[in-house]
Design a protein around this nucleic acid. Structure first.
Lengths: 131, 131
DNA sequence: TTATGATAATTACCTAAGTAAATAATCAGG
DNA sequence: CCTGATTATTTACTTAGGTAATTATCATAA
């Protein structure tokens, strides 16, 4: 396989694994946190809002939201258009999120820490250019 | 989430999806091809050889190899040390692989095509440096 | 007003990866 | 030569993603 593509896959697997490790103390998985953070930043959202924003398919979000609901992080309710399902954080989630965010920031700092600011920007640019 | 990490995840999801699409005509999934190619290049390998080389956990390879075996791409046999399981390509796989490799090369060329050779090298270097 | 087409979410089923624990074979020391 | 440790693989269970098809609701045109 092309070494570049191989490296992207490799790096992602490792990053995801490490992120899961870092989130273990909060009883969360990486993708669950991604959804939580999304709702945290944007307030009430529909499932469609979420999966379009995160660029994944709808069933993925149905699953993760259902799980987060049973775990007590999220609450859902129907909108005026009763096809859509809105999502909001529970009080417990709201209370816990800042601490989790700190964990994430520490992880991210470590993860990209071996690159200078300039290199990070360059890497981001190259990834985006590689469409 | 840090935009850089987010972009790596995003890009990988997309790449994997596209690679699966490209491999559909050969009735293969990306990870299956990765294992096949590994055996294609290195000849007979044990499961441990494969998962260490690909940097994934052992159960992942057990599963993929089992699947590829039932699909007729791979054959397995015990080594002298009867704990280890060796893997080799079947004749059908050997016959088909060159054509599949061509598909892959075309895909890869397209996937990294928006970057110059120099940018590709730079991107690879930066990814590897981001440990 | 109702039939039709579009949209939101879900369901069922698949690959892909992980962890933890179990099994089986081998190896090393006493 | 036996026992305990190590190694290779597997099993069971979980997250994370995908596609295809289904269900429920909505909007609109005849």
């Amino acid at each position: 396989m092309n070494p570049l593509i191989h490296e992207v896959f490799q790096k992602t697997r490792l990053l995801q694994k490490e992120l899961n490790q870092a989130l273990k103390q909060h009883n969360l998985f990486a993708s669950q946190w991604t959804v939580l953070y999304c709702v945290y930043r944007h307030g009430e959202l529909t499932l469609t809002d979420i999966w379009k924003y995160l660029n994944v398919e709808a069933p993925t979000i149905t699953r993760t939201v259902t799980r987060l609901e049973t775990l007590g992080w999220l609450r859902t309710f129907a909108g005026k258009d009763r096809r859509e399902k809105f999502v909001q954080l529970t009080e417990e989630a709201t209370a816990k999120l800042p601490e989790i965010e700190a964990t994430i920031l520490a992880f991210e700092k470590r993860a990209v820490g071996s690159l200078t600011e300039e290199e990070q920007n360059l890497l981001l640019t190259l990834l985006k250019k590689m469409e």
